[in-house]
Structure formats: C-alpha cells, structure tokens
Design a protein around this nucleic acid. Structure first.
Lengths: 335, 335
DNA sequence: TTGTAGGCGTTATCAC
DNA sequence: GTGATAACGCCTACAA
C-alpha cells in the first residue's frame, strides 16, 4: 500500500512549509496566486486528502452528523427513515460531512463525542430527548415539529395544505359526517394532524362529532381497533381520516371483514403515502410528502448551524394530495 | 460548558502519568491492582471518555464502519437496508464502533479515510465494487453472496432451504407445471435463487419448461411484464415463483387485470417477505429472512476482521417459509 | 506573503 | 510497574 500522503509531502513537493499548504487549503491567510497554484497542483498530483482524524482533533469537530432514531424496533423499518437518510447523506457529503445513524435510547458518552450534531425524528409532545440534547448542548434540528414550541430549527411538511385538500376533496364528494382515527397522542405529528383536521373541518361549517373519533396504536391493528371502537358506538361516518396510512389500511381491512365496502360504504383517507398505499386494494387516498427532500433540508440546516452560517428556518415543504380508490362519492344509502 | 476532561485530568487526579492511565484503560502493560483501582475510580468520578479523534489519529483507525449502498435512487427505500442498518448499528456500538451509510457510486477519498471497513450489499455477479474495494485494500464483508467466488466473508440466508420448502409446499398442493419470474440477471441473488429453484425442481423429478420462465426488472412493472411474456407464449404454469415479492405482486396484479384469479387460476410465490406481502390481497406466500439479524452478523464479522480476531465465515442464517393466500391446491380445470 | 512554534488528546517505545 | 518522550497530521497565533 502506498504510503499515506500528508500535508508535509505536499509542502515538500512545492518547496513551502506545511503552514502555507494548510493556508491555501483552508483559505485563511492571503496567499500569492503563484504559490496557491503550485500548491493546488501538488495536491492534485499527489492525491492528497487531509486526514480527518487529525483535523477533527485540532478543530474539535468530527464532521459527522447523526440521524437520531429513538429505539423502538419496528420504526426504523419504515422507508421514512431510509428516505430521510438518503437525503441527509447526499448533502452531508457535499459539505465534507458524513452521517451515522444513532439508533438508541440516548447517547452514550462515546457516541456523543463522535457526532457534531443530530437530526431528530419522531418527536413527542414534550420530548425528553429534546430536553436532553439541549442540556448536553448537542446541536440539533428536527424532522417534524414538536418537543418544544420554542424550537425553530425544524423541517416540516405543509400538513395544513395537505389536509385541507384532502378534506375539500371529500367534502366535494358529498361527505359531511367525517371521522378521525388518531395514533398515539404522545406524538406531536398525531396531534398536529388532528388539530388541522378539526380546524379545516370547522371552516367548512361542519361540526365534529366526537363519537366519530378514536385513538389507537400506529399500526394496522391500531387502525382496526379504532374503527371498531367507533362502530360499536352505534354511529357511522361516511368518510374517515387516519393519522397514517398504516392505520388507514388497518381500518379498511377491518371494514371489509365486517362486510362494509371501501369506498362504497365508507371512504378512507390516510396520510404519508407509504409504499404499500398504492399496492393495496383499494389503494389508499392519502397525502404525499417528500421525506427524501426533508432529509436534505434537515442536513443542510444542521450543517449550516454547525458551520456558523446563516440559514432559513423553519423549512416548510410542499405536499401533494393523492386521490386513489379508497375515496368516492357518498353512496345513496348513506345520505 | 464544563471543560472536556482528558486523560491528563485523570492522571493528575490519581497522581500518575497519562501513560499509566492509558495502560490501564487499554490493558496493555501490567499494572498494579492498586493503581488500576484508583485510575478506574477517577475515570468514573470525572466521567472521562477517551477522545476518539485523538485515538483515531494515533491508531490510524476511525472506528467507523460503513454500509455501502450502490447509488440507485429507489433501492435504499426498501426496509431491507433499514433493517440491516439497525442490526449493524446495534452490534457496532457494543464494540465501540459507529456506522455510517455510504450511499454513492464509489468512495471519495475523503470518505474513504473516514471508514475502517464496509458492509457491501446488492452484489452483482462480477461486482465492480468488489474489485474496487479489493484494489484499494478497503476491508469488507458482504451481505449476500457474489462478486467473487473466492470471497468467504459473507452473510447469507439459507435460500436453499427456503426454496426447497416453498417448492415442496406447492408440489404437495398438486402443482407440476411451475414457472419462474427472474429479476435482472446481473444480480447474484437473482441467479442463485433461480439456480436453486431449478435444482429442487429437478429433485422432484420434474422437468422445467423454459417457456414458463421470463425475466424482468425487480419491480411491479417488471413482474407484470415477465408474466405477460410467459402468457403470450401460449403456455400457462399452474404455479409461478418470483425472484422477489415485489415482482410477485406485479404478477398478481397483472393476472387479476387479465381476469385470472390468484390463487384459483394460478398460485404465486415470492421471496423476501417484504412488508407489503402480508397486507395485499391475496397476501403473498413467500420466504422470510431476517435482515436485521444478517446486519448484526455482518457487522460482527467485519469488526472481528478489523480487530484481527477470529471469526466464522460464511454465516448462513435460517429462513422461514410463509404460506399465505397466494397459493392453493391446483384447481380442477388446470389439471 | 510566508514561516516558526506550540498544541489538540492519545498511544507506543523504551528507559528506569 | 511506571514514567519520559516522541509521534500521529493538522491548525493557528504570532513572528518575520
């Protein structure tokens, strides 16, 4: 293996000192165009790349950012994280950063000092991690809102618009009795989506029947249980929204088992545009948001923050309402 | 922010030199029980954690391993990678390693030197990356076989067994005319699964009709196109295997569009047990393998390799055949 | 515009 | 057993 080339080798080749090389590479001091040119050329010829460990040591920076994922086994499986990761990695690379995933219920000391900053996900209403990272002064930005109303450094989808379009769509199809299937109330996104739903719902001059709303886990089973709860109250919405596509799917399956057809007997609307939403029958009407893009924005914001550059925050990303088979005009016997 | 505590602080507190502290921490030299005790205690009290950048610099190791994912936009979205990553991260942490994802079409110099080794995925038959990493002497292990028959450092599922069980299952259901939907032939796993299929098929005393086999992209469309190709040949299998669940899904959808019912008119068998396979209707009979576990084993193997420890290779992980709705006894009019 | 000197926190080598 | 001392490769005052 050819010997590692260091800054000294470059300096020697050009006939200057390492300091000078360092200066042209970091753009600190003013350097004569001539030396700059020669240094750059030598760097090229020798294929020099600065040793990150050494740089990290003296700069007290690791040039690594992390995607923090609270430990709950199944959650990482979502393509949500894969997408976010992909976006983050791409921009991180451009800035000379690398991204690791931190998948645990906290930050061990050893991991903590190997990371300059974090992108947080799955925030809870009063997120303990947010408090924790603030306390240990670990810089972070969030994918999604929550944790602390004071925080401004987050990337979020334009949920408002997504839900507005969804609700208008359903309204135009003739639906007036709308229900809602909530995920775990601890999560900020669950509350926010519901809040927006209520708000838009009211704007249409409709009043919400609380009996048409129920809570469940964020899973197929949760969705099934929630719709079950509503039906056993002896009431029936003509259209039902769910916090997530996976809950919507559970609800649809449950309804089918009970002999109720979707969308004929009930329209169902999800959120997220999960992979399976277009595969299943009926395919699920939902709101698509671009997690890959969100990952890019989050990394971008975090790195700007770390590098002390200006950055715009919060970032709100566009969404796209995706009508599919699970919604249709209200049927006659439902009027 | 409280000052960073270094090895010197610990040394001072105990009244020894940094050398000694380092020695007890790294278990190199023999140290008296007394000093060891006091050093350890001081470490505890001061909450000392070694600075990884400094250690990395002197040891010429980064204590970072990477999951390498060839850049093709949609692939990372699979929960496959998320699962592998989760497994890797968990064991890496135990060994003081961190994992980053390398998502690109090569290794930039800067990234290369921030990584001690890689876990490779999505290997092709004669993988260029494998050649590349060998050439630059980047240690690696592979998730899945391929790239080079000489390589022994890989983790793989017991595909043999999975396909045997699947084929026996179908055989017992009365099927004799079996077809196969292949993904892109460049990929090792595609060829391997097909090879095993042919082998097991022959073992049952059946002879394979090549007209019942076709190739397509590894996607829904690819699956649809492949089954389409077979049907247009004027032949029809009673059961068809697919390289992956996603292709199986595409095939099922296509058949439905053509008025052929699955499993009544044709049984379909996938591979992977993707998330959606249990959601869709009919749910897909498939072979489940534990990617999370594979990720753990891969990280474990790689780190052992890096740390110069002994390790067992290759590692072959058990699989589980999962019969679902997409397979059934052969119908009378198909006999 | 360029060079000198010192230090970042650790570990390895070799005395004592 | 323990301690100087010298790297590891780079950056940054400050001096020239």
């Amino acid at each position: 293996m050819r010997k590692k080339v260091t800054i000294k080798d470059v300096a020697r080749a050009v006939g200057v000192t390492p300091t000078t090389v360092s200066n042209v590479l970091n753009g600190t001091n003013r350097i004569s165009d001539e030396t700059r040119r020669r240094v750059l050329q030598a760097v090229e010829e020798l294929q020099y790349t600065p040793n990150m460990s050494a740089r990290a040591l003296v700069k007290r920076r690791t040039y690594t950012i992390g995607l923090f994922i609270p430990a709950s086994p199944r959650v990482l499986s979502d393509s949500y994280f894969a997408e976010a990761l992909r976006g983050m990695t791409e921009v991180a690379l451009q800035y000379g950063y690398v991204v690791s995933i931190i998948y645990s219920d906290g930050l061990s000391d050893s991991v903590r000092q190997r990371i300059d900053g974090l992108v947080l996900t799955e925030l809870k209403n009063n997120d303990e991690y947010v408090q924790y990272f603030k306390r240990i002064r670990m810089p972070f930005v969030a994918l999604g809102r929550g944790g602390d109303p004071m925080l401004r450094d987050y990337v979020i989808s334009d949920t408002n618009r997504g839900i507005r379009e969804a609700i208008n769509h359903v309204y135009r199809l003739g639906h007036r009795r709308m229900g809602y299937l909530l995920g775990p109330l601890g999560y900020e996104y669950v509350c926010e989506r519901y809040r927006i739903f209520r708000c838009m719902h009211a704007e249409l001059g409709l009043s919400l029947d609380r009996r048409l709303c129920a809570t469940g886990e964020n899973s197929r089973e949760g969705g099934a249980l929630a719709i079950h709860a509503i039906l056993t109250r002896g009431v029936r919405p003509t259209a039902i929204f769910a916090s997530t596509d996976i809950m919507a799917l559970g609800a649809i399956e449950y309804l089918h088992e009970r002999g109720l057809r979707v969308p004929d007997d009930m329209s169902v609307i999800g959120f997220d545009d999960a992979d399976f939403s277009k595969y299943v029958r009926p395919s699920i009407t939902t709101v698509h948001h671009d997690i890959y893009r969100a990952g890019r924005e989050a990394a971008s914001m975090l790195i700007a923050k770390l590098d002390g550059r200006e950055y715009k925050c919060p970032v709100i990303l566009p969404v796209r309402f995706v009508p599919r088979e699970s919604t249709s005009t209200i049927s006659l016997d439902n009027q």
